[in-house]
Design a protein around this nucleic acid. Structure first.
Length: 426
RNA sequence: GGAGACGUACCCAAGUGGUUGAAGGGGUCGGUCUUGAAAACCGAUAGGGGCGAGUAACCCGCCAGAGUUCAAAUCUCUGCGUCUCCGCCA
């Protein structure tokens, strides 16, 4: 949620920044509501003060044997007079809140406007592999190596599902274990959250109201629950309605969960295999920082995600996303995109974002500032570290050999019983 | 799934309709004292709003929401949560 004060102060500036996200904002009505709200509030409050003052005198008047009927009548009258204004006030506040909660986060000022076409690669690591043979694509490799069973996946679950089998399951789990080990080394706390979350968690994370259709909702359970689309949703709600101490910041967490997404719409042919599905595995990092600490935390998290891809020996690039391509709740996002030879494009394996105080405002996550002694909203950041479903194909394709085998990166070998090569089974 | 009890501030806790616009204790922080510490004593310890700045008076705030009443922590209803017992279950 955007701070309404920013809009009060400089609506034109906010409007321009939101336009970079291709979001057309009109604050005229909002500001009218806001002014009206203030007037009503002052009126209602002074009425209440009068009511309170009179009520307070009742026991005293009674004690001294005076007549209280007059006071009763007066207070009742004031109360009735106030009721109407109070109802109006509540309605206005709801309107204001509904308006604010639907607004996307304000993008950082240095970002280019517009969509994907304005994303900029700012880092490139490694090179596109130069194959001296005809390389296979990841689907063919996964099948010939016996790593993933797409047919049986479709049989038992339907389109968009797959099964990791044998060495494939081991490789998948090795990736997750490798990520976990790295995050622990970096001092992040390991969290295993529930996968079924209540509606409020979706609101706080900023996924709702906009993306309510994009998650899976469960029937037959109260309160209504949805399957988390990313562990971020759970992690940024961890400290909801809490006031943290300045000293405990930054808080660094990571979680492993599957991610469940409806992915409504069509699958492009380039998104075969595990590139896009209803369920994929991801290790997610989240930080809660003081306001002045979030820029450094952002760079730290980008570097962490990069380091993981580097250790896997994969060619990738880092893209600084244009304002219109970053998600609703975020102010800034860098994507780490790994090269997938068969498709000829770089695919996102990690998205690192700074939400600044957008999520914290929704979830009332604050900290006490040491200097001023006042409460401030924390900044929340999240980044994949990493999602496996695109690392897996990139790894198969980039590390494939002429004989159809695939070399396992050194960092994963300890998690696979020392296995160095995956060999075709057919 | 059935039955019951409970929810007060950082923690414990008093409070069954009116000087409670929340007692008391513990903890924590600050101060006095001390060479230093402990003890003792004094003070602070609730956020939010009006108001993105101070002060004073003000409004909201006892899990959340609604209601009864001149007046609600206190009475009623609904929701959420915690605990205990029974049943079922991996």
């Amino acid at each position: 949620m955007i701070d309404i004060n920013l809009i009060r102060e400089n609506p034109e500036k906010i409007k321009k920044l939101l336009a970079k996200k291709m979001w057309e904002a009109d604050f005229k009505e909002l500001l009218e509501w806001d002014t009206k709200r203030k007037e009503l509030l002052i009126q209602v409050e002074s009425n209440k003060a009068e009511q309170n003052r009179l009520s307070k005198s009742v026991p005293l008047v009674k004690k001294s044997g005076g007549n209280v009927d007059e006071i009763f009548a007066k207070v009742k009258e004031l109360g009735e007079k106030n009721k109407h204004s109070e109802t109006l006030l509540i309605e206005l506040e709801k309107k204001i809140n509904d308006f604010l909660i639907a607004l996307p986060n304000i993008p950082d000022e240095d970002l280019l406007g517009g969509g994907k076409e304005n994303n900029k690669a700012i880092v490139t690591f490694g090179k596109k592999p130069d194959f001296k043979f005809t390389p296979k694509d990841h689907v063919a490799l996964a099948e010939s190596l016996g790593l993933i069973d797409f047919e049986r996946g479709a049989k038992i679950a339907g389109r968009g599902s797959w099964i990791y089998t044998g060495k494939g399951a081991q490789l998948e789990w090795a990736l997750i274990n490798f990520f976990i080990a790295e995050h622990l080394k970096d001092g992040y706390e390991f969290i295993l959250p529930p996968h079924l979350l209540n509606e409020e968690s979706g609101y706080v994370a900023g996924q709702f109201p906009k993306f309510k259709e994009d998650v899976f909702w469960l029937e037959g359970i109260e309160p209504q629950r949805f399957l988390l689309p990313t562990a971020e949703t759970a992690l940024v709600n961890f400290h909801r309605n809490e006031i943290l101490a300045n000293e405990e910041l930054p808080k660094k967490y990571f979680a492993y969960t599957p991610c469940y997404r409806r992915e409504a719409g069509s699958y492009r042919t380039e998104e075969r295999g595990t590139i896009r599905g209803y369920q994929f595995n991801k290790v997610e990092m989240v930080q809660y920082t003081a306001q002045e600490g979030s820029d450094a935390a952002f760079l730290e998290m980008v570097a962490k995600a990069e380091k993981l891809v580097q250790k896997l020996g994969l060619h990738y690039q880092v893209s600084k996303l244009a304002a219109g391509d970053i998600s609703h709740s975020m102010a800034r996002t860098y994507d780490i995109e790994v090269w997938i030879p068969s498709i000829g494009i770089y695919k996102e394996v990690s998205s690192v974002s700074n939400a600044r105080d957008y999520q914290a405002r929704r979830g009332m996550v604050r900290y006490r500032d040491k200097e001023s002694g006042k409460t401030k909203f924390v900044h929340t950041l999240n980044g994949s570290g990493l999602a496996t479903s695109r690392i897996f194909p990139a790894l198969l394709e980039q590390h494939q050999q002429a004989d159809g085998s695939v070399l396992i990166p050194e960092c994963l070998q300890p998690f696979m019983g020392g296995l160095k090569v995956l060999k075709p089974i057919k």
